[in-house]
Amino acid sequence: MTAEALDSAKILEPSPVTQLRRRIFGHAGFLFGAIVIAAMLAMALLAPLLAPYDPYDQDLARRVINPIWHDDGKWAHPLGTDQLGRDYLSRVIYGVRISLLIGFATMIISGVLGTALGVVAGYFGGRVDMVITFLITTRLSMPVVLVALAVVALVGGSLTVVISVLGLLLWDRFAVVMRSATMQVRALDYVAAAQAIGCSAARIVTTEIMPNILNALIVVATLEMAHAILLEAALSFLGLGVQPPLPSWGLMVAEGKEYMFFSPWLITIPGVALFLLVLAINLLGDGIRDITAPENRN
């Protein structure tokens, strides 16, 4: 082969970085998800600067003001006010903190729990695997919403309680996916080689297995984060979620729902916000999977 031929081969085959960049910018879902999430994160961080009012300030004399796109809307309250006269824009802005906090914290708790169980089961197999499979099956058989409601009712609702309960309930998918991913990686030659030269199990898991199952982990993490946010909203809707006057989007939908026929924006705004956030997280997860492992799409 001549040097010229090598050069043209290089030109025909773009570098991995270029490939990755192309995949990212060619993936509309991923881009949309990333932009929305970046915007939401910025909103959460800058909430005190962005929000025109304290989200807890109530003024009964200025309740249920229409948002700006109605004829009688006022610029003082662009998204109107809620049933206690609190500025809706400020509550929506602060609400993203609650949803992100719940989604993130729940995902961390369930992720650590589920990944640990899944990796251990997949790596050691045998009896350990049987015990953990049993745990997963038991957890799956418990109806999540029902158990979460019952526990919140027993302990009393608060942000910490909701996060802990959801975290302790939503680890199953992590465990299932991590278990099979670990099994696949473990069967590969280089893991067998590492074992042969006497590496410890902990070392093999951290250096050989974890990097190889990271993609799957991220995808599950995004799905579960979205799941947690929706579940919190459902719990709050049933009156057993986080505590008022916390501006949680789920709670805002619940509190606005009596107005849904007459002042529909009270549930539309937080509902759309919730929908956008969950959609963005899901699209981001799908996108990461497609970009890092395009051959596995669906």
Binding site: G29, A226, L230, A233, A234, F237, G250, V253, K257, M260, F261, I267, G271, L274, F275, V278, L279, N282, L283, D286
Partner: peptide, 22 residues
């Protein structure tokens, strides 16, 4: 599929009620 996963169920139910019921 993606939209379905992101719609809060209570919200979707209330919307159905408004459109098909009311």
């Amino acid at each position: 599929a993606v939209l379905g996963q992101a719609l809060p169920s209570f919200w979707f139910a209330l919307m159905l009620m408004i459109v098909f019921g009311l």
